[in-house]
Write a protein that binds this DNA or RNA. Structure first.
Length: 233
DNA sequence: ATAATTTGACCTAG
DNA sequence: CTAGGTCAAATTAT
């Protein structure tokens, strides 16, 4: 936990440093807005992660230690699963963020948050246009990492995603069991979340860097978000 | 071969 | 019962 916190604060520091460099070395007339926006996005995410760690520490502190009933050898797999599910559903700790896609970066990069995620489900949610994707930390088993997140494209604006994080990462900095790649200690851990349930056409947006001065939201209409393709794998 | 994703079944809270 | 969340076998990617 403390390690996560320190890692996140270091991330933030690194982003601020980069931001500082960008702002320092460029003359005001040709500021690289897309890079700045991207850094601000990363910084925001990093700060949110810091908040997560901090809040979780508080949450844990407030918890009365109550031993969960250890799964008995007599339990059927089904009962064991039920126990696990109950525990998960009682996770009070969560954090909601909205992420706006930076068209210059592309969807995948914009939604990157520094962790490895594996998709474990997808559901249509009543009253919303787009399905919700369910992700858990890639290292959930190997490092007992309980972090999960839910990702859903906003109804109104397809460049906006609602992301809710649950639980806390306990997977790094860590030892690599097996042959998993350990995220290097980190300045910035950059790994893509799995976004395959999203519109793959967004993943290959043309390079928009020459248009960085424009509000990328206005560019949204230039891409056809073909609903027919939207749910394609 | 292993790893990740898809997707219908399953489970539980409300 | 329903909706949302999760599991896990089958499928696909690497």
């Amino acid at each position: 936990m403390e390690n996560n916190l320190i890692a996140e604060i270091n991330n933030s520091r690194a982003f601020v440093k980069k931001l500082q460099l960008l702002l320092d070395q460029q003359d005001l007339h040709c500021l690289d807005i897309s890079s700045i926006k991207s850094l601000v996005n990363s910084l925001t995410t990093s700060i949110e992660n810091t908040m997560t760690c901090t809040q979780f520490a508080i949450f844990q502190g407030e918890q009365i230690k109550q031993e969960e009933s250890p799964s008995s050898v007599n339990d059927t797999p089904r009962v064991q699963r039920s126990k696990k599910r109950i525990r998960r559903s009682k996770e009070k700790f969560n954090r909601h963020v909205k992420v706006t896609v930076n068209l210059a970066k592309g969807l995948a990069e914009s939604l990157e948050d520094g962790y490895h995620w594996r998709k474990y489900g997808q559901k249509d949610i009543l009253g919303t246009k787009h399905p919700k994707g369910y992700f858990r930390c890639t290292y959930s088993q190997s490092r007992q990492c309980l972090a999960t997140k839910h990702v859903q494209m906003s109804d109104g604006d397809r460049t906006v995603f609602d992301i809710t994080y649950f639980g806390e990462h306990s997977c790094f900095p860590g030892e690599s069991k097996n042959k998993e790649t350990v995220p290097p200690d980190h300045d910035v851990i950059t790994e893509n979340a799995s976004l395959s349930f999203l519109d793959t056409s967004v993943l290959s947006l043309p390079d928009m860097s020459e248009l960085f001065c424009q509000d990328y939201l206005t560019l949204e209409n230039e891409f056809s978000f073909d609903d027919a393709n939207y749910y394609l794998s």
